[in-house]
């Protein structure tokens, strides 16, 4: 898994490339929590490059969301694939994850 942090205006985007599973989720957790501790209010996770999320990866995303909520930091998922969207629907986690098809859509909603 490759993680790239970038800034779009005042927005912090973490682009993820690869799979989110039991092997890769500790790296993701570490990086997201590091960004959260740097003082941002919202983290945008760009899922354009994520080709697979398994149950362990999904578990990690749920816990990241919970952990960020405790820190008053919002987590937004950008451009998840149809497979990931269907996974969120199946598990009813689309009710707790804020997802958008593009960063522009997410920013529009934020305005």
């Amino acid at each position: 898994m490759e993680l790239t942090q970038s800034k779009t205006g005042s927005v912090t985007v973490l682009s993820i490339k690869g799979k989110i599973n039991i092997e890769t989720s500790p790296d993701l957790k570490r990086e997201v929590l590091r960004i959260a501790d740097s003082g941002v209010q919202k983290i945008y996770l760009d899922f354009s490059g994520v080709d697979f999320v398994n149950s362990s990866g999904l578990g990690s995303l749920i816990n990241l969301l919970k952990e960020l909520r405790k820190k008053d930091v919002a987590m937004v998922i950008i451009n998840p694939s149809n497979f990931i969207k269907s996974l969120f629907t199946l598990t009813h986690l689309d009710e707790i994850f804020e997802t958008y098809d593009s960063i522009e859509d997410a920013l529009k909603t934020a305005e």
């Binding site: 578990g59 990690s60 749920i62 598990t91």
Partner: peptide, 10 residues
């Protein structure tokens, strides 16, 4: 499960 990272059940 409160303190168990990444655990849930379907």
């Amino acid at each position: 499960l409160q303190n168990m990272w990444g655990m849930y059940i379907t």
